[in-house]
Write a protein that binds this DNA or RNA. Structure first.
Length: 577
DNA sequence: GCCGTTTTCGGCCCGACTGTTTTCAGTCG
């Protein structure tokens, strides 16, 4: 069930942008940004709160609480509407282009009346930006490159957005009378990092009630096509959703067919042909007689082709069919295998929730251990000091004594500098149970320099995990240019784990690099990088990515017992070197 | 607009990088 918090967060963030674009008070804009983030990460549903309750949320004062209440009551906020009237929606969309912020967006609109990405591209090509103050040749290049990036991510949405939407739709349709089965398929079921459109399947005798319920769902902006077997809609956020209703006996074949990938299915159909069979979304048929052989479950379809059931996350034609035929499919790591999270934040740095709240939420998830890893001082904006982190350690130790079932580890997220150095000297790092080290700056160093800094970080005997190793942000920034094989080799040699950061806009390492790293013998940590208690469940997306990289439980250090994990954290490899 | 061991005003994450300037604005993390 979607929470109203997300709508409120989006609206306040929009208002913050509009304040900036119109040249309003920068501190006011930041106040709205902070309130938006706090509401997005708040544990309670804002729809359940009155003004006083809303004011309990950090960074929400009287004014914002009243605006939120206004929104919950009327569906709009007058001040936001007023601001929207002054700035066309396209101007705000321009700020989605990397390196183009609110100031430049406003200049483009004010001086050249540019209010869409397309208009911007045209204007650049016509050389109309040349005369603008603050815009030069390099700026034009960077903007075009930024547009390119934006378009690559294009109409695809993040895995988390797609999951939330799909679960809502499945929940709705499951409640319709006559529903035998309901679920989603497509690249979402394969847990690809982004999803183009959603495929929802229903097994039922009669399709009409489902088509009707589907097109009437809130959030449906337009019905693109409506038939007996298939209906397609576009949501108000621009996502296309296809609903297919199948006869119950075709469920397995339909699920298999619509899950894909295309390449995986082609391989399966070729196998079917060799068995004198024909595979379609309705079943596996005898090629000659046309009689149905199997169709009810995916397992039967795979079995009849001589294969074990192949997990959806492997269905990318990356060798899974051959491995299945040999009986060598990996036993993939599952979310339930994860015994702890090794990269999380609190409000001591840029997290939203206090230590106690994060720890309570982690305990709720049944973890055996949990690491708190706030930012170290070199990420200057966090203002970390030795005193603050040591005081936190005392609180962590105290809480650890009180939490019977779950061991707390005190760690930090270090910042890898341009040369591969980190924030604190060895003797200070010695005091941490665990150190994650990540790249947060110097994304444009050349390949040799990037490789060198990452290898050096691995060689630091106090660095246990390389956080979000490529630094990419999906749809916003490509990963750094480094010789990853050299980095993987260094990880394996020194006993440094690579993180699979589960945050939906990172998913870093990406799946293909995970496969490569595994061949070097690297171990991995699947972490949420949570900045609020609500982010802890992001872990599922990291596990999905790990599965797409063919990882087993043994490859992932945070599925291990605490004793085995502590052995890994001694990092004998790097110390011996 | 929010917040307070600096409490009703006056701060607010701070430094670096980039490209465009010719001393700095804009963007980012």
């Amino acid at each position: 069930m979607a929470r109203r918090n997300d709508e409120v967060e989006a609206l306040l963030a929009e208002y913050a942008d509009l304040v900036q674009i119109t040249g309003g008070d920068a501190f006011k804009a930041r106040a709205y940004e902070k309130a938006a983030r706090a509401i997005g990460g708040y544990h309670a549903d804002v729809a359940e709160l009155d003004v006083d309750g809303l004011r309990q949320i950090p960074n929400v004062g009287r004014s914002i609480a009243e605006k939120v209440a206004e929104y919950l009551r009327t569906g709009t906020i007058f001040m936001v509407e007023e601001a929207r009237a002054r700035v066309p929606a396209g101007v705000r969309e321009l700020t989605a282009i990397p390196t183009l912020g609110p100031k430049k967006a406003m200049t483009l609109y004010r001086d050249l009346h540019i209010s869409s990405v397309d208009q911007l591209v045209d204007a650049i090509k016509q050389g109309r930006l040349r005369d603008l103050r603050g815009f030069g040749e390099k700026t034009e290049e960077r903007l075009l490159h930024g547009v390119e990036l934006l378009r690559q991510a294009g109409d695809r949405i993040l895995l988390s957005t797609a999951t939330d939407l799909a679960e809502e739709i499945v929940g709705e349709l499951s409640g319709v009378r006559g529903c035998v089965r309901c679920g989603y398929a497509g690249s979402l079921r394969r847990m690809r990092e982004t999803v183009g459109d959603l495929d929802v399947l229903v097994a039922a005798e009669r399709s009409a009630p489902f088509m009707e319920a589907f097109t009437r769902m809130p959030g449906v902006a337009e019905v693109i096509a409506g038939g007996e077997k298939k209906t397609s809609v576009r949501t108000t956020r621009g996502v296309q959703v296809d609903l297919r209703v199948l006869p119950p006996h075709s469920w397995g074949a339909g699920l298999q067919y619509f899950t894909g990938s295309k390449a995986h299915n082609i391989r399966l159909r070729e196998m079917a042909v060799r068995h004198q069979l024909k595979l379609s979304e309705y079943g596996l048929f005898d090629a000659e007689s046309g009689d149905v052989v199997v169709s009810e479950t995916e397992e039967e379809v795979y079995a009849r082709l001589g294969l074990p059931w192949i997990p959806p996350t492997l269905r990318e034609d990356r060798g899974e069919v051959a491995a299945g035929l040999r009986g060598e499919l990996p036993e993939l790591v599952r979310t339930t295998d994860i015994r702890g999270d090794l990269h999380t934040h609190t409000d001591l740095s840029d997290g939203l929730a206090p230590l106690e709240e994060m720890v309570a939420a982690a305990a709720e998830r049944g973890y055996a251990y949990y690491a708190v890893t706030d930012h170290a001082p070199n990420l200057y904006m966090q203002r970390m000091t030795d005193e603050k982190i040591l005081a936190q350690r005392e609180r962590v130790r105290e809480l650890d004594r009180r939490h019977r079932g779950m061991r707390l580890l005190h760690g930090t997220e270090l910042n890898i500098d341009a040369e591969g150095g980190v924030d604190w000297p060895g003797e200070f790092l010695e005091g941490f149970d665990l150190c994650v080290a990540s790249v947060h700056s110097y994304f444009d160093l050349d390949r040799a320099a990037q490789t060198r800094r990452l290898v050096r970080a691995c060689e630091n005997p106090h660095v246990h995990v390389i956080g979000h190793p490529t630094g990419r942000r999906i749809g916003r920034r490509p990963g750094i240019d480094a010789d990853l094989d050299a980095v993987f080799e260094a990880c394996a040699r020194t006993g440094t784990a690579l993180e699979i950061n589960a945050h939906p806009d990172r998913l870093d390492l990406p799946d293909e690099e995970i496969m490569r790293a595994r061949r070097h013998g690297v171990k991995f940590a699947v972490d949420s990088d949570a900045h609020a208690a609500l982010h802890l469940p992001y872990l599922r997306y990291g596990v999905g990515t790990a599965q797409r990289g063919w990882l087993t439980k043994d490859d992932v250090i945070n599925t291990w017992s605490l004793r085995r994990l502590r052995g890994f954290l001694r990092k004998e490899g790097a110390r011996a070197a």
